[in-house]
């Protein structure tokens, strides 16, 4: 895979900004438009930019899929926390009259887990495509 020098240079400039914007969209998912899925897609784009910078990227697809499985289990565990406190599945574990800033911890945590899971999944998909096209 050959790249032009201009593309590599612009990718190096763009990479940290896209990364920070992805984290911003994930962490502010409960305040502004966006959320886990959209921010995860932006993060995956940021990681895919590194394929322009270093075309001889190492292949770590097995670890990515394993990490995504663990993150999915953690999402189920965090979503089921309300079974202990409230007695019902899949809702906020804190009671409704609790303070809003405490209830936001749950939203930020789940948004972060979903965002990392989506980013890792999309990176695994595109990595396998790139490896298949290279061989």
């Amino acid at each position: 895979m050959k790249n032009s020098q201009i593309l590599v240079c612009i990718s190096r400039v763009l990479f940290p900004f896209v990364l920070v914007f992805g984290f911003y969209v994930i962490v502010n998912g409960h305040l502004t438009p966006g959320g886990g899925f959209q921010g995860g897609a932006i993060l995956a784009t940021a990681i895919l930019i590194t394929y322009f910078i270093i075309p001889e990227r190492i292949n770590i697809i097995d670890g990515l899929v394993r990490l995504e499985k663990h993150l999915f289990l953690w999402i189920i565990v965090v979503g089921s926390l309300s079974l202990i406190t409230k007695g019902t599945f899949f809702t906020n574990p804190l009671p409704i009259p609790a303070a809003i800033s405490f209830k936001r911890i749950f939203l930020v945590l789940l948004n972060f887990l979903i965002g990392s899971k989506v980013a890792i999944g999309l990176v695994a998909i595109f990595s396998s495509f790139i490896e298949e096209g290279r061989s």
């Binding site: 305040l31 966006g34 959320g35 906020n92 409704i96 809003i100 800033s101 405490f102 209830k103 939203l107």
Partner: peptide, 10 residues
């Protein structure tokens, strides 16, 4: 009030 989220979609 119920979810603590200002973004209704979230």
């Amino acid at each position: 009030y119920e979810t603590g989220s200002r973004n209704i979609v979230t």
